[in-house]
């Protein structure tokens, strides 16, 4: 993935600052009293919950904080810093660049997720960024269910000047299409094949079986494929993100996450809880609609921006 251009951090911060504004100012309110007591801790826990961290993770973070600082005179800045450090430590191991094996020819990326999380948009942005890195990219429109999903990907193909393998209309077999696309990508010596799949709720057993079939069929060409199984998560999703990661991972052994829509108001928290529980790499964050708004994930900057701290 291309190196962050200047200004991405400010974009991320602009997005996150709305979350942090409520988080940060709330914490300020607690610590105007100057001491970390039970009441302050409870409020702190609640504020972390407000960021979608989940009750358990919030309790854990504030308990760790209490161990170090309970009853002590602390400033708001110190508390924010301490929390940001805790969050950084949790997120650092999962902040990893998108791995592309240039020797694979093609490196196959299978993109999965619930409906409306931004899979097609993410595929388009990834294609554009891989192209900018000098890689040749092909896209496979394996969302054969949603109306006009194929057309949507084709437009991304035009924008990024990448071939799109697709069949007209809906109702086709996505696994067959993925197989054909893979065979074609291999014959043409393409560097990266991005397979866009239909959105599916993780509790629909038949749809998850369909996804497993795509995964299986692609293996027939090369047992190492798909080289990256990507789960796209919507940052506005609450605690259901746990269920999404858990079940998609059971189905197709997810390699990593991309979290989208971080330019809204509530976000970040769920990532911390997910990192603690699953430890899956986070390859990128979506912080806007433009191509350059898909950005590498930096744990420290993310944590500090979340706590409304200057880097």
């Amino acid at each position: 993935m291309s190196k962050p251009k200047r200004g991405w951090l400010s974009r991320l911060k602009a997005g996150l600052s709305r979350t942090s504004a409520s988080l940060g100012s709330g914490i300020g309110g607690i610590f105007s009293r100057g001491r970390l007591d039970d009441e302050a801790l409870e409020e702190l826990e609640e504020l972390l919950i407000l960021g979608d961290m989940g009750a358990a993770t919030a309790a854990e973070l504030s308990a760790t904080l209490a161990e170090e600082k309970f009853g002590k005179e602390v400033s708001e800045e110190e508390i924010r810093s301490a929390l940001a450090d805790q969050i950084t430590a949790i997120l650092e191991p999962v902040a990893q660049p998108f791995p592309i094996d240039r020797a694979a020819k093609p490196h196959v990326v299978l993109v999965a997720g619930v409906n409306g999380t931004g899979k097609t948009t993410t595929v388009g942005k990834l294609a554009s960024q891989f192209r900018a890195d000098g890689l040749s990219v092909m896209m496979a429109a394996a969302d054969t269910f949603r109306a006009a999903a194929v057309e949507q990907l084709k437009i991304w193909g035009e924008r990024t000047d990448c071939p799109v393998v697709a069949r007209d209309g809906t109702g086709g077999d996505p696994a067959g299409l993925a197989y054909d696309a893979y065979a074609r990508a291999r014959d043409e010596g393409v560097d990266v094949l991005l397979i866009d799949t239909a959105g599916r709720l993780q509790n629909k057993a038949n749809l998850m079986a369909e996804l497993q079939k795509i995964d299986r069929v692609v293996k027939k060409i090369d047992a190492a494929a798909p080289h990256t199984r990507l789960l796209v998560l919507d940052a506005t999703t609450g605690q259901n993100a746990h269920s999404q990661v858990e079940i998609f991972r059971e189905a197709i052994d997810i390699d990593g996450l991309i979290v989208t829509k971080l330019d809204g108001t509530a976000k970040g928290g769920v990532l911390v809880a997910l990192a603690k529980r699953f430890g899956l790499p986070v390859f990128a964050l979506g912080v806007g609609e433009a191509v350059e708004d898909l950005r590498p994930f930096d744990a420290r900057e993310f944590a500090r921006a979340l706590m409304n701290l200057e880097n």
Binding site: L50, D52, D234, T236, G238, Q239, G264
Partner: peptide, 12 residues
Amino acid sequence: ADSLTGQDAVNV
């Protein structure tokens, strides 16, 4: 609105 929305539901 997505029924899976988290805390942000209030802001939205």
